[in-house]
Amino acid sequence: MEDSGIRGQLNVFWRRFRKNRGAVLGAIIILITIITAIAAPHIAPYDPYEQNWRNRMDPPSSEHWLGTDQHGRDQLSRIIYGSRLSLTIGLISVAIGLLGGGFLGLIAGYYGGVLENIIMRVMDIMMAFPGVLLALALVAALGPGLFNVMIAVGIWSIPLFARLVRGTVLSVKENDFIQGARALGARNTRILARHILPNIVPPVLVLSTLRLATALLSAAALSFLGLGAQPPQPDWGAMLSQGRQHIQTSPHLSLYPGLAIMLLVLSFNMVGDGLRDALDPRLKN
């Protein structure tokens, strides 16, 4: 019974999502990026770390489709390998925000009282912090490097998830069926798992997708401010940030990593929109 109910819901969701051409396109681009990341060693024409100082900053050619970088490395191969880093940055930093914020929001919303007050005040404090500066200071404290960037960007989105989850829990909690379950003496964990979590999933899914987009942009901004991924890793943000010095002489150094970031961020944004429309019919125009 229940199984077919979920399947039915998924069907409805898929029919709505499919109608949004932008979202479908975004999903396809993300899928391609994931495949590229997995198959990078098989697709990339060159070793992304192999330097050739005599061919520094060559413009695109039939040999190097996207040209070579400051160390004479094949830029296409670096962008292909870079998709792994970009997806990792996005996923891990959102996971940090989601797990941290989701947990806090769940507790705050469900148990309420002093605990809720404390948690939400701490979230207010984190929200009041100017975003990029918090991330920048955190990376300076933890030391540069991809993992620390992910932590800094992730912490930044904790309060957003906490607020969203708490709000959803509060509205669900008032529903009759929860009150009913409570009256019947269901345990808290059971209520949480059976009734509240399923209702949190849709909005959290939407926010996560949109935060994936923001995470990539934030990581790139940190690279620009001098505290990002460590070379020689082929991180798009770092490539773009280093390439900006050559914007007048070798624009291909910043153009392609920039386009790569923009395309992936755009896809996450479009999929996020599509998810929201499909999951929440009230917002559907």
């Binding site: 770390y49 330097q51 100082w53 400051q70 160390h71 070379p231 020689p232 280093q242």
Partner: peptide, 8 residues
């Protein structure tokens, strides 16, 4: 940049 090359 230099040290990336030296590293290599």
């Amino acid at each position: 940049e230099l040290n990336e090359a030296i590293h290599y």
